[in-house]
Design a protein around this nucleic acid. Structure first.
Lengths: 224, 224
DNA sequence: GAGCTAATTCACCAACTGGTACATGACCGG
DNA sequence: CCGGTCATGTACCAGTTGGTGAATTAGCTC
């Protein structure tokens, strides 16, 4: 009734490539994707296992078969989300630029990055509501360092050597400032919009916001 | 059994000042306070009406008597929390300082302010997860402007007149930067700590963080 | 094609959750 | 001191929620 197996049945008849009826990996990935959307959308407590199951092409029983329970499913969602983001961050390449331009570029890329992954930001907010207890418990996630931080560290070192940057901050401080700006724009978009009447993600203001972040970090690092 | 009415009963016997058995306002305030803690702690979906009732000195029935339902109680919690914060913000007084020192002071006060109201920050995060739908629906809250913003506007105007500040930003932009820094420190404390091993609220780093915010905003506004 | 195992389906449940009907009790004005 | 109303406590409920037992089937191996 609700499911639409026609697509699979048709291809399964003649094609042998991927149209298998039983496919553990596909089922697992399906569940994980739907769960990611649901948890990001509704929060941990707000998300419903029944709802997730219904939006899947499989059944609730499979969720328990593959993940064990709601909490473990949520941790799996977090682990996948963080892994994907970290994968993207590893592609950063600003080593060839001079320090000032490199830090501006890094800030800009982080800006773009956050803007295109609102679900990830939401999951992080949700995890903070729960005091990061799931991250802390996950061996995969706790202490998983950020590639962007290493890149930033290298830039700062070059900037210090050239006498361009102030030296009373470390890479983590600067990362914190950049993250704060980018996360706030997405995570607090709604209350900010409701109270001040300005949509922080308004495309018309995007360039201004991006330039503002770059100027902010550069001005701070090169001040005095 | 579970309740402990002894305190009230004892004082009600002899004292007439505040120890009344029936006190609508007191009951309402009691519920609201407990609900604030619970919602801030567990989120909207995670908070339980039964749990709130149990932690109250009254019963679940009273929650429905005074507030009507879970959602209305939550909105009442938001309204009270915002009102209190706005009340505090109205006490800002930095008009006598020169623009640079005034903006630094305002940033510092906002910093202090956020640090001492973690529950409020949590409620804001939670409300953002729900896309500010409750704020939007509340006539009390939607469009309720921020006193700090007016103060900031006045400072900027003086700074522009004196040719001290860049003029390609408005008060809301600057407020956004300050808020982002302060909110992030509290709201993302847990994931940041779990992943980078640095507690953003560590008292030993507080002065450094506070100075960093001041320098950040001043450096940006006075750049070039 | 028999046999085995991983994957899947289906029916079912106990506990909880928000919410309510109703009886009762306290306080205040007259 | 009485009557009414606001406030409160008790008992209860229907729907939902996360979770499970056990039978069933698809596909692989030999």
């Amino acid at each position: 009734m609700t499911a639409q197996p026609s697509e699979f049945e048709l291809s399964a008849g003649g094609v042998d490539t991927q149209g298998r009826v039983r496919d553990a990996e596909r089922t697992r990935a399906d569940i994980l994707d739907v769960a990611t959307r649901e948890f990001a959308d509704q929060g941990y407590a707000g998300a419903r296992i029944n709802e997730i199951a219904d939006k899947t092409s499989t059944t609730k029983r499979m969720i328990y078969y593959y993940f064990g329970g709601k909490e473990q499913l949520y941790v799996a969602v977090l682990e996948q989300a963080y892994s994907r983001i970290r994968g993207l961050e590893q592609q950063l390449d600003v080593e060839h630029l001079d320090p000032v331009e490199a830090v501006r570029e890094l800030a800009g890329l982080t800006f773009d990055h956050h803007e295109s992954h609102p679900d990830f930001i939401r999951l992080v907010s949700i995890e903070n509501i729960h005091r990061a207890e799931h991250i802390a418990r996950s061996t995969v996630l706790s202490g998983l360092a950020n590639p962007a931080l290493d890149v930033l560290g290298a830039i700062l070192r070059r900037g210090w050597d050239a006498g361009l940057f102030r030296d009373d901050v470390d890479a983590l401080d600067v990362h914190q400032v950049i993250s704060a700006f980018c996360v706030f724009r997405t995570a607090n978009r709604h209350t900010f919009g409701a109270i001040f009447g300005r949509d922080l993600l308004d495309p018309a203001r995007r360039d201004h916001q991006r330039r503002m972040l770059g100027d902010l970090v550069v001005a701070y690092l090169t001040a005095r």
